[in-house]
Simulated assay, not measured.
Amino acid sequence: MGILSNKVERSEIKPGDHIYTYRAVFAYSHHGIFVGGSKVVHFTPELDANSSTETSSNSYDEIYNLPSSCPTFPDCGFRQPNSGVVLSCLDCFLRNGSLYCFEYGVAPSVFIAKVRGGTCTTAPSDPPESVIHRAMYLLQNGFGNYDVFQNNCEDFAMYCKTGLLIVDRLGVGRSGQASSAIGAPLAAILSSPLKLLMPSPVGVATVTAGMYCMSRYATDIGVRSDVIKVAVEDLAMNLGWGAGGQQEEATMALLTN
């Protein structure tokens, strides 16, 4: 993978990889964890069963990469009731989009050079078996309420890869693309020495570009001080998402179908 693109071929990804694909002409990216067997676990908003109609359901499926029907995998689209964590086949996850692989443990210089957020982090990844365990556990127990800025699909994938959570849930989440859009510049101005680099009539463009890059870096989970490592079982118990640890074996059986 290079500086400009993390695009990969299907043959290059391995179980436990954090993958993503772009939607709406590269306006945003959708993220998930490849768990093997051509299947991906990813996080979407819950569909409101009380207000769903055939039309709204189809629109929901299109926006959030959920298959209305899959001729290849009968279990494609599996999820627990009232949960946004979904198991999809790779084809339905991509929806004819290109495949990209999120990078972990990158050097600060590489992170800053990748101007677009949501492609990498300086935080190291845990072993693949730990990543898959978290993803499958959350498929059974859920990942709380979806929030585009604080708890989205990228946040889900990054938690599965690292086990890291932000202590202050009122602040910016783990998502790199959300931080790039609204959170990083604000966080840097309010809470870091970058506030000393306020633009002046001279060098406005240089200062603005530097602030953007450095503020992205300041909110990366690999350098933030407000992150903690949380076991997935403790995450479910503490937030009241359920106690389905013993049900994971049944969910893991989906990978072999």
Rank of each mutant, 00 (worst) to 15 (best):
N58K: 12
S98T: 09
G2M: 03
R23S: 09
V230R: 11
P74I: 13
L194H: 01
M198T: 15
C160E: 06
M1N: 13
L66Q: 11
F34D: 05
T53D: 14
H133Q: 10
C70T: 09
S192R: 01
S175F: 06
P81A: 09
R116V: 14
S180I: 00
M237S: 13
S225H: 11
S29K: 04
V223P: 00
Q247F: 15
C153T: 02
P45V: 07
L186Q: 12
V148A: 14
Q150R: 15
T44Y: 00
H133I: 01
P108K: 08
E12V: 09
V230F: 02
E9K: 13
T44I: 15
G77L: 00
A205K: 14
A135R: 01
P128M: 10
E9C: 09
F26W: 04
L164I: 08
S51L: 08
N6M: 02
K39W: 05
D220W: 13
R95N: 10
Q140N: 14
M136R: 08
E12R: 09
G163S: 08
V207E: 10
M198V: 11
M198F: 12
Y146T: 04
S38G: 13
V223F: 13
T206N: 12
M158A: 09
L90R: 08
T44L: 01
K114W: 08
S29A: 15
I112G: 02
S57P: 00
I166C: 11
I228G: 10
V202R: 11
G244K: 11
G16P: 00
F149I: 10
H31Y: 09
L186N: 07
T53F: 03
I228H: 03
S11F: 01
D75H: 12
D17A: 07
E249S: 13
C76V: 05
S180C: 09
P74A: 10
S88F: 00
V41W: 02
Y159V: 06
C153F: 03
L170D: 15
F26Y: 10
T72G: 07
E46I: 12
F34R: 05
S200L: 08
S225C: 12
C153E: 01
N257A: 06
L165T: 08
S215N: 08
N96G: 12
D126W: 15
A107S: 15
